[in-house]
Write a protein that binds this DNA or RNA. Structure first.
Ligand SMILES: [Mn+2]
Ligand SMILES: [Mn+2]
Ligand SMILES: [Mn+2]
Ligand SMILES: [Mn+2]
Lengths: 239, 239
DNA sequence: TAAGATGATTAGGCTATACTAATTCGATAA
DNA sequence: TTATCGAATTAGTATAGCCTAATCATCTTA
């Protein structure tokens, strides 16, 4: 078959969709996604990434600077955000309508995101009342491809004394998620930073309004992304 | 990599899963599924089927008699029924919980059946109350791999005068399904055969209890599979 | 500034799945 | 009983993904 006659815009394969998502996450802060980081996140060998990168840049989904890394083009970014929308709507639907807990949804959504039709995604979004956040607090991109960019501080960096709303939990690891849920540390919770031990020590917080203390080690604290709340306090209701 | 060290039981690919399903449907009545019929149903070229048939028989999923066709082994049959269970539960879930109509579910389920986990399938089955039939009236295999074998007559062959319950609609074509639904011809409906024109002519039925007449051409009548109902009449309630 | 170390790429191969063109088998019909 | 025809198979090729081993580029450090 003549290459010129081949479909100019074939649908993306599931591999390509996953590559675009991880490139989005790795280059989100404006930088380049490195080959080895992409390889690690997708659990493939670095040469596999080099090969895929060649194809993706030929099709105009990414920009490749050899030995530096890659970034998404506008087209690639649109495709990535479409996948992220699907993934997060699926996660929320599975928790809200099918009894999944937030530690178990990720793996299921990782598969389903490639199989659902646009129609099904939008039907689930409707059934959920067009939600803005997934079960982990991550913002759901709109169908038009816009995504909320919140300025959040990690609990590991938040100064003592601050009152915070926990907004996002930055892991998909189900053991960590289950532990955090057991501690009552889920998106939407209010807390104040009561102290922090030196030398990368744990952070102690007090839940609001109960006042219950929680001691959070640095590894987990780095995963807890928070929004500062005015101390007089109706920030959560205003969200 | 040494072939002997490769995974002895790799998960089935989506292609393999679809081949097994169509072989099941084509060889259901005990016969052999022909290469060209498999090719037509999967919309691939016959040599592609020959190649796949070789691999599937090497892995013990089918039995191949060259130039005759193929049949499923016990293992292949189990795999096929597992896919059919997934497909039918998905179809029913999409219609019952997400507002799909019965003409639109098939294509969606055809993709999702390969992506859902066993856990998700069983959660959907629970949410549906462990249903026995899909939206088209087809029986849903159990998780253990058993399937109801009903003796049904096609409306095209049913003798005049008989009282019938419409049980299954044997097509996935959405135009035909929409038309039939518009005529009130959906699984569970009761009807009596009032007359049939000769020379492959249409069959006229009366809906029960309304008595409304419906004239059904031979092509559609052949798709309507019915169960005979005792004339005194509580068959439907006993189902 | 030259050597390592580290990370990226190229070279070469493998499997799954499809295709077209050529060939072969088997059933039917002269 | 053989010629023929349609179905099935084989031969050969392509693409998407992945791999390991070898090479190459860039950054760091002595
Ligand atoms: Mn995925
Ligand atoms: Mn999430
Ligand atoms: Mn179906
Ligand atoms: Mn399918």
């Amino acid at each position: 078959m003549n290459a010129l006659l081949r479909d100019a815009n074939p649908p993306l394969t599931r591999s390509v969709e996953d590559y675009l998502k991880v490139i989005y996450h790795l280059s989100n802060q404006g930088g380049f996604a490195a080959t080895s980081d992409i390889a690690a996140m997708l659990d493939v060998a670095p040469p596999s990434v080099s090969g895929m990168v060649k194809r993706l840049s030929e099709t105009g989904l990414i920009e490749h600077v050899p030995y530096r890394g890659v970034q998404l083009t506008a087209q690639g970014r649109r495709a990535a955000l479409r996948m992220i929308r699907r993934h997060r709507i699926l996660e929320l639907y599975l928790t809200q309508h099918l009894g999944y807990d937030w530690g178990g949804v990720h793996a299921e959504a990782e598969q389903l995101e490639h199989a659902v039709s646009d129609e099904l995604v939008e039907r689930m979004a409707s059934a959920l009342g067009h939600p803005l956040y997934d079960p982990h607090g991550d913002p759901i991109p709109t169908a038009a491809g816009e995504i909320e960019e919140a300025e959040l501080v990690s609990l590991a960096d938040a100064p003592v004394g601050l009152k915070l709303e926990l907004r996002q939990v930055g892991t998909q690891d189900s053991a960590r998620l289950h532990y955090l849920a057991g501690q009552g540390l889920t998106p939407g919770v209010l807390l104040t930073v009561s102290e922090r031990q030196p030398f990368n020590g744990p952070t102690t917080v007090a839940l609001v309004p109960s006042g219950d203390p929680r001691v959070v080690g640095r590894e987990l604290a780095q995963l807890l992304w928070c929004r500062e709340v005015p101390v007089d306090g109706y920030g959560a209701a205003a969200r």
